[in-house]
């Protein structure tokens, strides 16, 4: 208890507790000190194994889960790679047919239709409960 050295009673009690702890560790015989023996009973209980333990195959199962996670990570990386290829292909299509898109974009009716579709979709996202009640 070196953080409160001014408190002698606490210091003595701490020393007694530590003495009891050491006596239990070294399996010493009973002492002629009632207080010390009380603490030894407490220390004995504290040193007893817990009432429940991990299963004997716990380590094996955890290691197996880690292997499974590694496999899943590989799958995830493969999915991302496929997505990237898809995105590149989409970009290629956009560039390849840019003349067609430009022609469509020059038609004001088509632009207005696209704007309406986009706006209704956006409103549905912003106020989903309102959109649902209407539907």
């Amino acid at each position: 208890m070196n953080h409160e050295p001014h408190d002698d009673a606490k210091e003595r009690e701490w020393a007694l507790q530590e003495q009891a702890f050491k006596a239990e560790r070294l399996v010493l015989g009973a002492a002629d000190n009632t207080k010390l023996e009380r603490y030894r009973t407490v220390m004995r209980a504290l040193r007893q194994p817990m009432d429940d333990e991990l299963a004997p195959d716990f380590a094996h199962n955890v290691a197996a889960s880690v292997m499974q996670c590694d496999d899943m990570k590989l799958e995830l990386y493969a999915s991302w790679a496929l997505l990237a290829v898809l995105a590149m292909m989409l970009l290629g299509v956009l560039v390849r047919y840019s003349a067609v898109w430009m022609r469509l974009a020059s038609n004001p009716w088509l632009v207005a239709l696209a704007a309406c579709v986009a706006l209704s979709g956006l409103l549905g996202k912003l106020w989903p409960e309102h959109a649902a009640s209407r539907g």
């Binding site: 208890m1 070196n2 953080h3 701490w14 009380r38 603490y39 407490v42 220390m43």
Partner: peptide, 12 residues
């Protein structure tokens, strides 16, 4: 140390 002290005292 303080926690150990107090809890052992309480158990006693």
């Amino acid at each position: 140390k303080s926690h150990l002290f107090r809890s052992r005292l309480r158990l006693r």
